[in-house]
Amino acid sequence: MKKNRWRQGAASVAAAAVLWLAAVCAGSDDLASAAAAVRQSELARCLLQWELADLLPTDSLPLPALLALGQSPQLLAAQEEISRMQAVSPEKTETPAPPDEPVAQDEPQPDGDTAEPAPPLSVVVTDENGYIRVGDVFIKNASRQTLDGIRFDGTFAAAPGDESPQVLILHTHGSEAYTMPAGEEYVDTGSFRTADASVSVIRVGDELARVLSGYGLSVLHDRALYDDPEYNGAYYRAEDAIEEYMAKYPGIRFILDVHRDALEDKAGHQYKVVTREDPDCAQVSLVMGSSWEGWQENLKFAVAVQQHLTESHPTLMRPLTLRNSDYNEYFTTGSLLVEVGAAGNSLDEALKAAHLFGQGLAEVITAKAAQ
């Protein structure tokens, strides 16, 4: 019976492939035009994304389909492009779901979402089920990498130099904003998004820069909007900016890309994430990439920062997430993607979290400088 089902599945895949090829190549006059039509088809990219586990949480394709995908020159040729596509929007940390099942959202939601925020949520992991534990830090490894052989002993490669600036803060998605309490309304450009830098994550970056500067670190804060008016392509535009900054200021050793997360239930209610120590303080999460040589040093730095913060603020940090993309973190070994709060949080809650995170980060960086 299982053998028959396997054959039926293989036949279905083969039939679907034939139908797709027929549809794509319809109207082609010769083999060259047919090949061009296949190359331009979006389905090829979708199939590769499926095989790379980006359209489904696990590799659930039948074995014949996976083998076919793996042997396809067209799909293999597109793998680098798909890896770049993965960096269009950070995939958010998977968190234990409360009773009404909030889910992480990666793309901007339709304009006009005015649903009331859901009750506060403190994301706290206490066991290793689904996580890798390093000291007091829990890591959700959603990448294809292994952490075997990485020595998490508090050491890391990044160190501040004498040249200024030493730290670059920017916002790939600078229009990301927070919920609007009464009296704190802003002009939105989308769902929990605004071009008003005084109430968006750019304001959070201002606070972070202020705290780091107070510890004697030289900070450059890029307050440009790379996701407005168009969300897609923001990482590429931010990447170009980072390249220019690195060429102009070679002393930059730490790059912080500051975002805010978004967690909502099925009804569209936005959750706020808050610490257990202070319900008026948002939680923070780090999202790390692993698609370049040397990513381990960035992860070691992230773990060292999170471990230090957890010792003084046990629930400030949500689990760290490791993913397949690069998120432009490959420029320096001290690059982090920092998500401060979620769409359901208020700006004040996010600012309080940024203040605490900045203090802990500065303490880790200055301690390394003193070594």
Rank of each mutant, 00 (worst) to 15 (best):
E339H: 10
A354M: 12
N141P: 13
S290N: 03
L309M: 00
P57C: 12
W50M: 12
P110T: 06
P229C: 02
I132T: 14
Q71G: 10
Q306I: 07
L67Q: 06
Y236G: 15
D280G: 06
A302I: 01
V38G: 08
Q40D: 07
P108N: 02
D100T: 05
T155H: 15
F156C: 08
W292F: 04
Q371W: 06
G112I: 09
G358I: 11
P250V: 09
A159I: 09
L320H: 04
M317P: 11
Q86S: 05
T332V: 04
D148S: 11
G233F: 09
A367T: 14
L75Q: 05
L356P: 04
E230P: 09
A177R: 00
A36F: 05
S312D: 13
V201D: 06
V287E: 03
G360N: 02
E243L: 08
S175M: 10
A238W: 11
E243D: 06
L61A: 13
D153N: 15
R276K: 14
A224C: 07
D257E: 00
V187Y: 10
E239L: 12
E80K: 10
L336C: 01
A353R: 01
G149W: 14
F301D: 00
R84G: 04
V137Y: 02
G27C: 12
Q8F: 02
V201H: 12
A15T: 07
W295P: 03
D265W: 01
I242S: 12
D100N: 02
V364H: 11
A34D: 08
M180H: 07
A369P: 09
L299R: 01
L170E: 04
P90I: 09
T155W: 13
A267S: 13
F357L: 01
K3Y: 09
